[in-house]
Amino acid sequence: MKHFSIVSILVILLTVIVYFFLQAVGLLPTQASSQAIIIDQLFDIHIGIIAFLFSLIVVFIGYSLIVFRRNKQMPDEEGQHITGSSKLEIVWTLVPLAVVIFISYLGAISLAETRKIDPQALDIKVTGGQWYWSFDYPDYGITSDVLYLPVGRQVKLSLTSMDVIHSFWVPEFRVKQDVLPGENLVKELRFTPIETGDFMVLCAELCGGAHAYMNSPVKVVTDGEFQDWIDEELGNFPQDPESLGERLAKNNGCFGCHSVDGKDGVGPTWKGLYRSEKTLVSGEKIVVGEDYLYNAIVNPNSQIVLGYPANVMAQNYGELFTDEEINNMITFIKSLE
């Protein structure tokens, strides 16, 4: 019995130490959504259980190996002949079973809490594609490549993908939802930002190529700032073809592959592209003009520049954009000459 008392005290001590150590190192990012608070409470319970079970097993093994070690004078000493105890086995089957069911119950409660629906939630349609995010605010008729969110108001994201599976994740908000292609597979994700500041949406599901860079800024702002942003987006931006083209390119994720500062990307940079000389995969040498640019947008595979992969750019921009929009974009590209 003496041994069990000592071991019990050591287990409790180590549990406390491990628990407070794990709490002190700051395991998780800031809590920037009300869901993060709920989820972190469950994390806390997990950390407590981990600390206890780790200590229980490690202390028992360590104590036994040290205290009951072999007597140096008796190198052939054998252990005691104890083959088992059904009573103990039943205890350590049923107690963990009860704990497991209880944790699952807590898990279910926690999940339900994170999914509470606010009928006043702000609707945002999120589109993921290789490799960009695009955010539609149907209530305001705005499309943006930055996710602006008013603090304290629940948002309801409806997520869909243009191509492969992506996943919407902001670590500070904790919640994550895969983004699937297919009209019948639009998924919903709700959360309530509670802290203003700048965050990042990260694509969490491997989506090929520039997956690592499929990040977009998230700005959680006050109600007033949110309203200002909407006003600005709705009226106060320039309406000339060059600016309209730039907005179109930005909101459709073109910059994910084509830089405007000369940096090489998945696709050729747009800086200095116009009137430059390029060699195509076919070996043909061309000078980039308006016709080439138009063709490269609506039918990208037909004239791939040597050194860049085919089949990366979507083939349906000819259907998505009007001719006017495409011409705006070409005007913008020309401005980067």
Partner: peptide, 12 residues
């Protein structure tokens, strides 16, 4: 294994 914590941990 618990869903809500996995929403954070998945694919990390």
């Amino acid at each position: 294994g618990t869903v809500s914590t996995d929403l954070h941990l998945h694919d990390t």
